[in-house]
Every structure is written in C-alpha cells, then in structure tokens.
Amino acid sequence: MGVPLIDIRGLTVDFDAGQRVVRALHGVDLAIHGGEAVGLVGESGSGKSVTWLAALGLLGNRARIGGEVLFEGRNLVGAPASDLEAVRGARIAMIFQDPSSSLNPVYRIGQQLAEALQLHRGMSGAAALAEAARLLDRVGIADATRRLRDYPHELSGGMNQRVMIAMALSGQPRILVADEPTTALDATIQAQILELLQEIRRDSAMALVLISHDLGVVAENTDRVCVMYAGRIVEDAPIATIFEAPAHPYTSGLLAALPDLEGPRRRLLAIPGVVPEPWNLPLGCSFAPRCPEFERACEAAVPPAIELVHGHRAACIHARSGSA
C-alpha cells in the first residue's frame, strides 16, 4: 500500500499529576494512508483524543510523550515548535465537538477565517476574504459573503460546525482529524455534517480520522476502525470485519450493548463493571476483569496485537483468524 501518510509508532503519554505519573496512552501504533477514512472508537478516557493531541504536541508541558509520529519525513514527537506550527492546522487540521467554544465569540466569522488563511497560506486583505467566502460556500453555507460578517452566536450549532470545517480546510490539509464532530448536534444536523465531510473527502483525497463513541457513525463514514480501550488500540479492522467477525471480546461487547432499530427487541447484553482508572489498571490485559472469556493467562501479560489476517489486528490471547 506504499508509504503511509502518517505513521504513529509506540506512542505513549504520561501525565505528571504531581505525586505520581499517570500513563494515559500505552504505545499506540497507527498508520494512515492518503485518502483513507479511519474511525477511532472507544469510551471516555480510552485515549482516542489524547492520541491526536499528543501527536500534534497539543497536550502542554504536563504531558511526557514517547514514541514516534512520522509525517512527511519528520518525527513530530519532540519536534521544535516552529516545525509543529507548520503542520498543525495546516497539513493536519482538527475539529472538535463543540464548535461554538472553538470559535472566538467577539470576532466575525470572516475575520477568523481570514486569520487562518493568513497563517497557513499567507493571504491577506480582499484575497483572504474572497477565499473565506469560497470556503464558506464550499461547506454549504448559503449567502457566504454576507455570512462573513456574522458573529458565531448568530449562527446555529450546525452552521458553526460548518464554519469550523471551513477553517480546517483553509490550510488545505492532508489529514482532517474530526473529534466527535457531531456529538453536540441534533440527529438531522449530524446527518448533514457527516455528509459534508464525506463529500469533501471524496473531492480532495484528504485522509479523515473520525473520533467517535458511536459505532454507527463510524460504520457509515469510514473504511476502517480502531477500537480503543484504556489507552491501547485493542482491535484494528476493516468496517465490515468489525461488525461481522469482531476478534476482541471488548468489540463484541460494545456491539451487543447497542440496541437495534429494526427487528425483534432483545435484552441488551451489558458489559459488566466499569472502565478502569488509568492509575489503577488491572494486571495483564486491561479488559480482563470485565471479559467473558477471562482466564488466568490474561493476567500474565499485556497481550500484544496479533495480525489475524492482513489488515486485521487484535490484542487478545483468544483472538484467532476467522474466529467469532
């Protein structure tokens, strides 16, 4: 498949919490190719956002980051700020859950877009505003020239998320990381935004990383999913495989916990227990205490990710190719 666009290898994050150091990410390996759409799924605290914040050096100096993030021939971990600034927001753009808190409430939309264009593409004045209007039009905002003069509070949540996407596109990114981009939006607006992201990806050959807690959202919008649990990727597989033949018991558990929209109603199979705290992880496999397939060997060591078939990895000692 050639050289990946971004290659994350053994990424670790340790947070310095004063008395102790807490490890939030335990060695994440993730390679993404140009134009690919990858979903990151997991519950809160599983490390889906931290992976990308760490990769882009956005965690601040309380976090110690290990491993490598290879992007366009450079390692972003430990790279000087000037190098990171050339990548962040430009080559790799990120959008977040709550668009209205990502926009500055006291500046007009047009000013904020023009600022991004100046930063990433050196445009200014009328040229920047014209490009800003083009970007707004691109993300489906009608009457773009007039909208440039609006403040964020004058737009709805869905419109603000469109503005955030326009801003992310201003640097002509190779990768767009969308961190729960529709969680704060209503169902019918969520459908609009996801459709827009798909359309942009088709047109621009940009890679999309979609971070979500909703397996349905990921299923419809990506080619491949990584399931995260307690700071590790426990399964990485093509979408169809995840739903038809999940290899990790946590993935199967998540699927069984979701109600269906059609067909007979069945009792949900809840995963017992809770996600462990990062400073209090169980021995061996982090999922072992909640796992229906638990056996003594699970506590012996953290199971490494095994490649079951090409493109399908799972970190479970019970995982076998063609299982489940």
């Binding site: 169902a187 459908a191 609009q192 959202v217 979408i239």
Partner: peptide, 17 residues
C-alpha cells in the same frame, strides 16, 4: 429515522433535511 447512523442500512436511502 433515516438520520440514525447504522452499521447495515437496509435499502432505504438517507433523507437529508
């Protein structure tokens, strides 16, 4: 209903408002 993302969409086309 059509806005709900699901793993297997049974035929029906998504309706985007």
């Amino acid at each position: 209903v059509s806005a709900i993302p699901v793993a297997h969409r049974s035929g029906r086309q998504r309706l985007i408002l």
